[in-house]
Design a protein around this nucleic acid. Structure first.
Lengths: 371, 371
DNA sequence: AACAATAGTTCAATCGATTGAACAGATTAA
DNA sequence: TTAATCTGTTCAATCGATTGAACTATTGTT
């Protein structure tokens, strides 16, 4: 009995001490703005740091009371967990790297936005890196991302990139890698993107409906899978719709404005010029449009024009440019979800996820002859 | 009992699945070599981890021989330092957060590129966050950045933002904060941006030279410092160049395309419409241009037009839009350097750095009457 | 030869959170 | 009454790198 009474007394004392300490801590905090750790919370409550850690992480063996008390004090002290420490211990940084060729493109910008949106819901922080279409930069970025121990990388390849070692390196480190849009077949990774092959069919079908007979294609470099697929789709679609395939009408370039200009000029000088141009990129389409305008060629009457990617400007120029919507938001969300599936042990599956979604043709004035 | 048995069975199954998954992961892991730490290097050389650490960091008390040997082994084992561990110990993550309203804007995209370029030279990794002009998102982003313990934040305010508590929080945590372009005077922080006031002078001077007499201004919201300055500069410039100030010609908006359209329409309906429009944003300028074209108003003959920011499309539309180049690259570089100065203890200076750089007027067809 | 100075390492604590094992006390079962 | 079970917590090791103090050879000085 005596022991019990003494314990009660001690508890009371302890409680008083607790209140006192808490107050003290608060004052100290406000005065020196020092960083609060679980140790401080533990001290304030008269328990150990490990109990605090467990309480904060909802460990089943911690009582409800303690959890509530701990969380309350944590909030009052404005506790911010040290991510570095827990990352070090858990071997998980909660950081995901996203690497894209450029941020100032409608497609990538939207996709990234969705990736961030989805991943932050799961408590991840996203690091955005841009390669500027440069191979070297891409390598460096990957180095950096691995250095800071991201839990995964979601990437889209730079145009310049042909060698894939740096991507292999990610895989060899056991870091999940998800590719979207631009990617190579040889790279055995999860993938999300539109069906480039099918997209070309949409374009050709539409142009055929507009009574176009000779369709030219301004393509991207064939070492990149998506551009190869677009060309393949283009040719197969021509076949399907019984249109002639003329190799002189098919070109390969970086798809910049200048490329569009140069190639369009060349096409116009042909003895038998095309009556429609399908560019695998909007910038090239814009370049082509400029040349057409300069040379007084009527668009779409004399020459129909379709681009690819739905860049912002396509709806702003005159005539507005028909283009393929790659549904960037959906791709972004799916890429994020593929990553989440990959890191979820309970759903671990050796099979790779290859997700192909359907693109959408946006018909604008540059290709709409018939009303 | 039956229930219990079943539970046990399920647990067993679950456990087996878990083990299987783990084994799979282990195999992958082992195949790709385990993670190398300084301990491994130490073991390989028969010295202690601390000696290795010191050798790698070029500590003066370590012999040249040892340093060379350590670095050689490190390279051979493909050692990658654990950033988390060193960050935890040193209290420095080598991460810098950059928060911008949008990535798909020429200005911000270029600025960020330069920031990354400059900071990675100094061994920093950059986290890019976009607020999408949303106040809420901006707050969340700052939370995240602080959570992962960035060494500093370089930011430009969202349009929506009027309250500044979240920025104050950064400061109160002792994390260096550098603002660029969009920023408020009340916020006592380092700053880099163009001289918005002076920029308006450039525009008015140019329009006066083009014989414009009644200049309208499509302004941004005045709660944002830069837009306020542009209006002030505009009025003062009108005074200086002895042009009339007509408040009905000065408006305030979000500077979106629609805003430009709406305001331009209103201006055209005035009994005495202006002969020039100076928009504080390129998108608004574009909207205005669309309306002018639709209504058959000749640009620049009947109405000269100048925008602001040098967005990509300004040089692509017809007529190309005159605009202000904010020298994003320079701003980016300077912002990065301001940060570096701020964290360099040897150059510690309580004085805040406010850097104003001169902008540049790019004269294009939308305002060039005389050749 | 004795001692100080110096170079080159090792030792041990540390950053902050996490986690399995250990332990104490309360409750229930045998 | 004793043993078994369950609950709620503490203990101590750990993640990997860093760092000042301590220690041990080695060299130089007188």
């Amino acid at each position: 009995m005596l022991v019990k009474d003494r314990t009660k007394y001690l508890l009371k004392l302890n409680n008083r001490l607790y209140l006192f300490n808490r107050l003290n801590k608060l004052i100290t905090f406000l005065r020196n703005k020092k960083k609060i750790t679980i140790k401080d919370i533990a001290e304030a409550l008269g328990i150990t740091p490990s109990a605090v850690s467990k309480a904060l992480n909802d460990h089943p063996r911690i009582s409800k009371q303690t959890k509530i008390a701990v969380k309350e004090v944590a909030k009052k002290l404005n506790y911010q967990p040290n991510n570095l420490a827990s990352a070090l211990r858990k071997g998980k940084s909660n950081l995901v790297g996203v690497m894209i060729p450029r941020t100032n493109s409608n497609f990538f910008s939207l996709a990234v936005e969705k990736i961030v949106e989805r991943l932050s819901k799961e408590g991840y922080n996203v690091i955005i890196a841009q390669s500027n279409e440069s191979f070297e930069r891409e390598c460096k970025n990957i180095e950096s991302l691995l250095l800071i121990q991201v839990d995964g990388i979601i990437a889209s390849m730079a145009n310049e990139t042909t060698s894939l070692e740096h991507y292999e390196k990610i895989k060899s480190k056991g870091v999940p890698l998800i590719m979207f849009d631009r990617w190579e077949d040889e790279l055995d990774v999860d993938y999300v993107g539109i069906d480039d092959y099918k997209s070309s069919f949409l374009v050709v079908e539409h142009l055929k409906q507009q009574n176009c007979r000779r369709i030219a294609h301004i393509g991207g470099y064939k070492h990149t899978r998506i551009y190869k697929k677009r060309v393949k789709g283009f040719k197969d679609a021509l076949k399907k719709y019984e249109l002639p395939i003329d190799e002189t009408l098919i070109s390969e370039s970086s798809l910049l404005i200048e490329d569009g200009r140069r190639i369009m000029s060349q096409l116009l000088e042909l003895p038998d010029p095309p009556d429609a141009v399908y560019a695998a990129g909007d910038f090239a389409a814009l370049g082509a449009l400029q040349v057409l305008e300069e040379q007084g060629v009527q668009v779409p009457e004399d020459m129909a024009l379709v681009g690819f990617s739905n860049e912002t400007f396509t709806s702003l120029v005159k005539p507005s440019i028909s283009t393929i919507n790659q549904r960037s938001e959906l791709i972004g969300t799916l890429a994020a979800e593929t990553f989440l599936k990959r890191v979820d042990d309970s759903k671990w599956d050796p099979k790779l996820n290859k997700t192909m979604i359907d693109s959408e043709l946006i018909i604008r004035n540059s290709s709409l002859k018939t009303k």
